[in-house]
Design a protein around this nucleic acid. Structure first.
Lengths: 115, 115
DNA sequence: GCTCGTTATCGTGTTTCGACGATGAAACGC
DNA sequence: GCGTTTCATCGTCGAAACACGATAACGAGC
């Protein structure tokens, strides 16, 4: 039983991201910052984040068209960003529409600023 | 004779500039942010940066003592941070004294903030 | 000069990443 | 139903990251 098409979030998944007000240092924050940085630490993923920032939201196919990478590779990068909570994907018919997750992004900026 | 300036792209007026005048987006900035994030994207390296921020400067041995890693592994993490320009190491007799590189750190914060 | 303490580098094994093509799964139009 | 479009996942491969012990380099002190 291979479940394809996991839930990409019905429309507004909680994303388990904490709101602001959490500490920007300490062991937990260290791990959090490291994980977020690791997710951002690839040129293609930075590019994806920038695209989403420009266009507010983006069909997966549009992102693939902008990058010099295969569709499967882009899909993997999207999965990395999603796992890190930096983006959100909502199924829109046969497509998947990606957008930034502002909360995590703010959190990332706060942690980076705390360095 | 030293070069006057390491080519900062004299002729091209940047669209968006950080505090130091360099752009915070565009292909070059994408690669730069990705490289910096990749360097920060490991818990041990975040920890090292935090240690250096607390103590201002740190002998390599002190860092090794604070981390649950072998001396050679810590030395490698330090090399990664140094290669990324985030820290600087000066030889002090038989020891090596590490400290943060504020310029790169500011640059990192600017780029992260530009996301 | 020799030894000791400190740190960088080497060699190695294991794990993870990054890329791709191929395959499969859902939604849609017919 | 059936094929198309769109995207996620699988399988695979090479390259890089990560961790360690062992070893080399380098000053300092005797």
């Amino acid at each position: 039983m291979k479940r394809r098409r996991p839930d990409v979030g019905a429309a507004c998944p909680p994303a388990a991201a904490g709101a602001d007000g959490r500490p920007v240092d300490g062991p937990a924050a260290d791990a959090e910052l490291a994980a977020l940085c690791k997710a951002v630490g690839h040129p293609a993923r930075v590019r994806i984040l920038r695209l989403l920032a420009q266009r507010n939201e983006c069909i997966c196919g549009q992102i693939v068209a902008e990058l010099p990478l295969s569709q499967s590779t882009v899909s993997q990068h999207l999965a990395v960003l999603k796992r890190a909570g930096l983006i959100r994907g909502t199924i829109d018919g046969p497509r998947t529409c990606y957008c930034l997750e502002p909360r995590t992004l703010r959190r990332f900026r706060a942690l980076a600023g705390g360095l």
